[in-house]
Design a protein around this nucleic acid. Structure first.
Lengths: 150, 150
DNA sequence: CTTCAGCTTAGAATAATTCTAAGTATTGAC
DNA sequence: GTCAATACTTAGAATTATTCTAAGCTGAAG
């Protein structure tokens, strides 16, 4: 169980270094939490999970570590509907779907063109980031609702 | 100055009624503020502007009124980057561009297909809402930056 | 070694929003 | 019209997510 975590440190260390940040056990721990279950936890959830292995970690450190991981490009923030920010270690081009029924946040792939292409941004605008967030019913909840309907 | 506001009440009244909400002077006032300058103000900014004409209005009422307007479909919330929610009375299909330099929020038209088409949502997902937010440099700030560069 | 910048920590502070309780206004039943 | 029921507004307290502060710790560089 602990063995597979040995792979990570080098990659993490390099990425931190390129942003002028140091490798620390807390940063590794927080990153591990995100990699372990990719369910887009909030900072608070990361904190609770990280405490299992590092009981002394503090909330402020979790925020600091998450910031560091975002800064060095290993993690993305996911904001949906003004709820607490969630964190996602999937750096592929994708967007997020929030299920209004069960509250889960799910990754949704974008086509190669990406949704920004569909937005046809007027000339003059320089887009450096974009975030597409979807809301509705996830496949599970949609299926349940359909069943109830008959 | 007051004359052009006479147009609004009926439309607003109808829309409120269809959601089981009442017409009130405060709701009209808040809606007027949004229509007057479509610059995506925050609740606080709406509050300050509304106070000019209705000095007794309270912050809680502004939030209540904005909620009512969102509920009855006359206003949209615009969330960007966990900053304070902004409010937009443009209900056409469009998305928002946030300028990292000047902080302005600008409307950007979407094509008829819309960005969700570009996202190719897997089957099973039922998308009821989506929000595409862009960040970068607006035309003005991009031009200024280019000039400074030489 | 010693220094110095970067990191972690607990707890205080902040900012946006929501809640609470009380008062006011409007609606509908009679 | 009167009266009760419901909806709305208000001030201020409370809540929540996040950031700040000050102090101590750590590890690399001189």
């Amino acid at each position: 169980m602990l063995s597979r975590k040995k792979e990570i440190p080098e990659q993490l260390n390099e990425r931190l270094a390129t942003s002028g940040l140091r490798f620390t056990p807390q940063r590794q721990q927080v990153y591990n939490v995100l990699l372990d279950t990719r369910d887009h936890p909030t900072a608070e959830e990361v904190f609770l999970r990280a405490k299992h292995e590092s009981p002394d970690i503090s909330m402020a450190t979790v925020y600091n570590c998450l910031d560091a991981l975002v800064t060095c490009g290993l993690v993305r923030q996911v904001n949906v509907n003004r709820a607490a920010t969630r964190y996602c270690p999937n750096m592929n081009d994708h967007c997020h779907f929030y299920c209004d029924d069960c509250g889960k946040v799910l990754d949704v792939n974008c086509t190669s063109a990406g949704p920004v292409a569909g937005a046809k941004v007027p000339s003059g605008f320089q887009v450096t980031h974009y975030e597409l967030s979807l809301r509705g019913h996830c496949p599970d909840c949609a299926a349940k609702a359909a069943k109830l309907h008959h």
